[in-house]
């Protein structure tokens, strides 16, 4: 019997149709429209002009640097902080279930709601953060108004919101580790640090790789939180690639916006794909 006969290819049609119309076809046609000036009705072919413009204006190409800083810092902080929290929450402390829920919950709150709240907490004169800083004798900080600092303030908020999901992925990974390793280590007289370095860290590698990839791609695509906290400002200090796409769209430069979109998806593919390959190959060794 030909086993494939049981499984009709028709079952794939609904997914393929929806995914093609609303994802694949736009993706392919964006390569063409990025070479034009268009208004959804007529288009004029302009060659690489949109890309030339993108890379000649600081307000546009500056977003690439901001995106990279944002993605690598949020991802890196989550990888490290979540690991520390996960190790604490897999120890024998009594409140671990409660703490796990608390750390995780911000994930379920919309980025917009988090953005509104943290923008208020970071208010330059009245915000709670500055009251605390003044209380312990440090001066005020203009969290979101200082162009050199604003991006990092948003990064801090992103880590606050996203560290929980990374933590539960680590916890799942740590709980998969065979208890026998730890028992053997105890018999050999290993201390806590040695157990962590020689057992937990190497064996939690697959979970760590998932976190790196997920949070990096999330960071490279991020828009909601930045848009709600700073709107890309002050000036263009916190503009990321996704916010440039939106700004150019809102201003009516559809061709330029599409070019920005194409640059964004090429860059993400160029970073994420090789990284995933590399991490997987290391995992298999």
């Amino acid at each position: 019997m030909n086993k494939n006969k049981i499984y009709s290819m028709w079952f794939l049609i609904p997914s393929i149709v929806i995914f093609s119309i609303f994802f694949l076809i736009p993706l392919v046609s964006s390569l063409f429209y990025s070479l034009t000036v268009w208004d959804f009705k007529n288009f004029t072919f302009v060659g690489l002009d949109n890309f030339k413009q993108y890379f000649s204006q600081k307000s546009l190409y500056g977003s690439i640097k901001n995106t990279l800083i944002y993605a690598f810092l949020t991802s890196g902080s989550k990888v490290v902080l979540a690991f520390i929290i996960a190790v604490l929450l897999t120890s024998k402390i009594k409140t671990k279930d409660f703490l796990r829920s608390i750390v995780f919950f911000p994930n379920l709150v919309s980025s917009l709601a988090v953005g509104v709240t943290f923008a208020a907490l970071m208010h330059p004169t009245k915000g709670l953060f500055n009251l605390v800083l003044e209380g312990i004798g440090l001066g005020r900080i203009d969290w979101l108004g200082n162009p050199n600092l604003a991006l990092y303030s948003v990064i801090l908020t992103d880590v606050w919101k996203g560290v929980g999901i990374a933590t539960v992925i680590y916890i799942a990974g740590i709980q998969c580790i065979d208890k026998g390793y730890y028992e053997a280590a105890d018999i050999d007289g290993a201390n806590g640090w040695q157990r962590l370095k020689c057992i937990t860290i190497p064996l939690v590698r697959p979970a760590m790789n998932s976190i790196i990839i997920l949070s990096l791609i999330g960071g490279l695509r991020s828009f909601d939180l930045i848009w709600s906290m700073t709107g890309g400002g002050p000036g263009f200090a916190t503009d990321v690639m996704a916010s440039v796409v939106y700004k150019q769209y809102a201003a009516g430069y559809y061709g330029l916006s599409t070019a920005g979109n194409v640059i964004m998806l090429v860059l993400i593919a160029a970073i994420a794909y090789p990284l995933q390959r590399y991490l997987l190959s290391k995992e298999e060794q």
Binding site: K3, N4, I6, Y7, M9, L12, S15, I16, F19, I21, F22, F23, L24, I25, P26, L27, S29, S30, Y33, F40, I217, R221, A242, V245, Y249, Y254, S257, T258, N261, V262, M264, L265, I268, A269, A272, Y273, Q276
Partner: peptide
């Protein structure tokens, strides 16, 4: 269930979406 070339190609095409962000304006156009 179907282990064929065509299904693995379809699968890879769909999995592109895990990584790459959507192209927004052409979607609006469609």
């Amino acid at each position: 269930r179907r282990r064929q070339k065509i299904t693995s190609i379809i699968n890879s095409l769909i999995m592109i979406g895990l990584m790459i962000p959507p192209a927004i304006l052409p979607t609006i156009f469609i």
